[in-house]
Nucleic acid binder design. Structure first.
Lengths: 121, 121
DNA sequence: CGGAATCCATTTGGATACTG
DNA sequence: CAGTATCCAAATGGATTCCG
């Protein structure tokens, strides 16, 4: 969607946040720092390979920080950057909108399932 | 990203809004109803095939309405539904965040280009 | 005018197995 | 523990051409 990015700022936001599990990861990191395996369990049934890539992209985009501790067993912690923190209200809004969307679900039948969770819980 | 959707509401929002040009189209429709060609020009260098698909998906998801006028030459108008209207603040927030992201650009080098446009302009 | 049809390249997410 | 390597399937975006 490179072409769209050069035309409209909203597409930039979507480009940065639009991956599978990305927003869920950010949502978890809003609450507190997580280490990899911990974050993985919190996010859902995501494979390590995929989660790693999402996190690396978020890191590249300046949303999360990756801290490696030279210990054994290895420990890697992920946390939000200042820029990542600016996503808080957006994540909350999207989360609420998504929940409402699922809730009001009387529609054509995309999306189903439920999760009453909210950001500030 | 079907798996993620069943776990977290924010992913639902991303799933609905995450296509190329989708948010840009919604952003245009917030201001007023557009007919196809008009919307196409307003959105950017998008091919009819792609824009049509994006709009159909938004229609399926209850975000936009497609009205066909039995005239010649044919006229098709797109507008936001009530549910689509609830995206206004989110679009505005994403737009502002994206613009700020581009603006503060001291980053690694994804996204470049500019567009000072905002929703309420 | 507003698409639909066809075809194609890339990107994306995922399963599985292995490693420092 | 926190990945990486390899391979794969599906979805996504796009170019081009044609139609009612």
């Amino acid at each position: 969607m490179a072409r769209a990015i050069e035309v409209c700022p909203v597409e930039v936001a979507i480009a940065v946040l639009g991956g599978a599990w990305k927003m869920t990861a950010v949502k978890q990191l809003i609450e507190r720092t997580h280490r990899f395996g911990e974050l993985r369990r919190a996010v859902g049934p995501v494979t390590p390979r995929v989660l790693t890539r999402q996190l690396r992209e978020l890191e590249t985009d300046g949303i999360v920080t990756r801290t490696v501790y030279a210990e054994v067993p290895p420990r890697v912690e992920y946390s939000l950057t200042e820029r990542g923190r600016t996503l808080e209200p957006i994540v909350a809004a999207l989360d609420a909108w998504g929940a409402d969307y699922l809730d009001a679900d009387g529609m054509t039948g995309r999306a189903s399932g439920s999760d009453p969770g909210a950001v500030g819980e």
